[in-house]
Each structure stands twice: as C-alpha cells, then as structure tokens.
C-alpha cells in the first residue's frame, strides 16, 4: 500500500521516501504506523510521535486527505487506505527578522 506524504515543515519527504510515497504493509496500517515510519526514517528530523507519550508531538499537525487529525474519530488509530494523502506540518513563528 502506498501513502502520499506532503510536508509543511523542514523535512524533505522526497529525500527519504521515493517520489514522496511511503510503502506500508497491507495489513490494515494506521496513521500511527505511518507516523512511526516517518519518525524512524527521518533520522530525528521529524519527531512526529512524542516518545514520552506515544501521541502526536504538540508541535505538529497532521492532515489525512485534508482532514485534521483532531477531527478524526479514531485519531492515530485511523486506518489508512491505498492512495491516501497525509500532510504533516508545524507552525512557524519566525518572521524573517
């Protein structure tokens, strides 16, 4: 199963995942599985899952096909489907100052 990943922070998806797509096992993977994979493969650049809590790090937001994780009933346990698009990003507070 392939999931298209889009990044809205300092993480170059294409550098880590071929064509920006993450290959996951077809065994009903969840959003948590994907984010763990991203965290693991990014060499610490994208600590999306907080190792202390096992939940989404509060610095990040996640969109599944444009829907915010906060709006997903099953949250990180939401099952992904082939072709889903997941966006990961964080707020930026610098102003070029």
């Amino acid at each position: 199963m392939k999931i298209r990943l889009r990044s809205f922070f300092h993480f170059d998806v294409a550098e880590v995942f071929d064509q920006g797509q993450v290959q996951l096992a077809d065994d009903r993977p969840t959003l948590r599985d994907l984010l763990k994979e991203v965290t693991q493969r990014s060499d610490g650049k994208a600590q999306v899952i907080d190792p202390a809590t096992g939940e989404l790090d509060t610095e990040y937001f996640v969109l599944v096909n444009g829907r915010d994780l906060q709006c997903l009933e099953l949250g990180l346990e939401t099952e992904l489907r082939d072709g889903d698009e997941v966006g990961i990003g964080m707020m930026h507070f610098w102003g070029g100052g």
């Binding site: 889009r6 990044s7 809205f8 922070f9 170059d12 998806v13 294409a14 920006g20 937001f61 969109l63 444009g66 915010d68 906060q70 709006c71 966006g87 990003g89 707020m91």
Partner: peptide
C-alpha cells in the same frame, strides 16, 4: 483556517482552525 505553504515542494494546504 490556516494556509500552509512549502515552497520547496510547492505544496499548499488549508487547515481548519478550531
């Protein structure tokens, strides 16, 4: 809503603000 921009990949997205 928040407009996010990544000029590195030319990805744009909107996120609903609650």
């Amino acid at each position: 809503q928040v407009l996010y921009i990544n000029e590195g990949t030319m990805d744009f997205c909107f996120r609903e603000a609650v």
